[in-house]
């Protein structure tokens, strides 16, 4: 990803009201060529709404969006030709076999991509000759993955793509995604879970209640994140021994166990712990919720 290039995808104050109820408000971010962009938020935050607006499936209330230099809100066939889209709930024509369905897709897109279909199917361990209504949820999702990638799109919108995939297949999915990225595709990857995108995405946006909370590099976010660390000592210790340790925001001591909350680097705390003869360190990786809560708190100070 290079900041010197122009953004592939650019949203400016994109807003969608569903009648009275909230959809998204003033969503703005940019995605660059060859970038995987994580799009995170809790249920009902507005991830799907944003993506479906970019696909032209629903009409924006206000704001603007451009993709590949074209107006995304007019969503021309010419633009959709270069986009791959995996819906959050991938419903397909279940009276087809996977292969029949994917060939139908190829005809509708006017592309010839049998080779790629078979290649992906083998890698994802999908039996192309089974009827879609006989496939399990995860196997159906594989059909969706192939559907999104098979025409080598320049832009990909993947709405919770790994839901239902087992870990082995998830790994293969990540490889397929990396190949697309290496080809220069711009990819928006939505998820509830930071851990799902952190190995893939460079930057993420967090959306909550329809509004963007932050757009940031993952590494930067993690540094800022609040973490819980449990320290197990040989014998009972005193909380006062950790007074003034940089980054430590809270400490609760119960006999020989200390539960600490840390923001940013853990280094100072660990150093102090070693000095006091720590035996075991138990780190709770920051969950999306925790990062998210910190960010919401810091973005809306009372």
């Amino acid at each position: 990803m290079s900041r010197r290039t122009n953004p592939r995808i650019s949203l400016t104050n994109l807003t969608k009201n569903y009648g009275k109820s909230r959809g998204i408000r003033d969503v703005s971010f940019e995605v660059f060529p060859g970038e995987v962009f994580g799009f995170l938020g809790p249920n009902g935050a507005g991830k799907t709404t944003t993506i479906r607006t970019l696909m032209g499936l629903i009409k924006a209330t206000s704001g603007s969006a451009s993709i590949l230099g074209m107006n995304a809100l007019e969503s021309s066939p010419e633009l959709r030709k270069r986009i791959g889209y995996l819906p959050g709930v991938f419903a397909t024509y279940s009276n087809y076999t996977a292969l029949q369905f994917l060939r139908f897709v190829a005809r509708m897109r006017n592309v010839e991509c049998d080779d790629l279909i078979f290649n992906y199917a083998e890698r994802l361990r999908l039996d192309l000759h089974r009827h879609i209504h006989d496939l399990s949820k995860g196997n159906r999702q594989k059909v969706g993955v192939i559907y999104a990638f098979m025409h080598k799109p320049d832009v990909l919108f993947l709405d919770e793509p790994t839901s239902g995939l087992d870990p082995l297949v998830q790994r293969e999915f990540e490889r397929i995604l990396n190949e697309a990225q290496a080809r220069g595709a711009s990819i928006i990857l939505s998820s509830h879970v930071l851990s799902e995108v952190e190995n893939l995405a460079d930057r993420i946006a967090i959306i909550n209640e329809g509004e963007i909370v932050v757009v940031e590099h993952i590494s930067t976010l993690k540094e800022q994140a609040v973490r819980r660390i449990d320290l197990y000592f040989e014998s009972a210790i005193n909380a006062n021994s950790f007074a003034g340790v940089a980054g430590l925001t809270e400490i609760v001591v119960d006999g020989e166990v200390a539960q600490c909350t840390v923001t940013g680097s853990e280094r100072e705390l660990l150093r102090a712990a070693v000095n006091h003869g720590v035996m075991t360190v138990h780190t709770h990786e920051p969950s999306l919720d925790e990062i998210f809560l910190t960010l919401v708190k810091s973005s809306h100070p009372q």
Binding site: M55, E78, L79, R80, F90, T92, M108
Partner: peptide, 10 residues
């Protein structure tokens, strides 16, 4: 829900 893929075609 298949409209999402039908109308995503170019």
């Amino acid at each position: 829900g298949t409209a999402d893929l039908l109308f995503a075609f170019p």
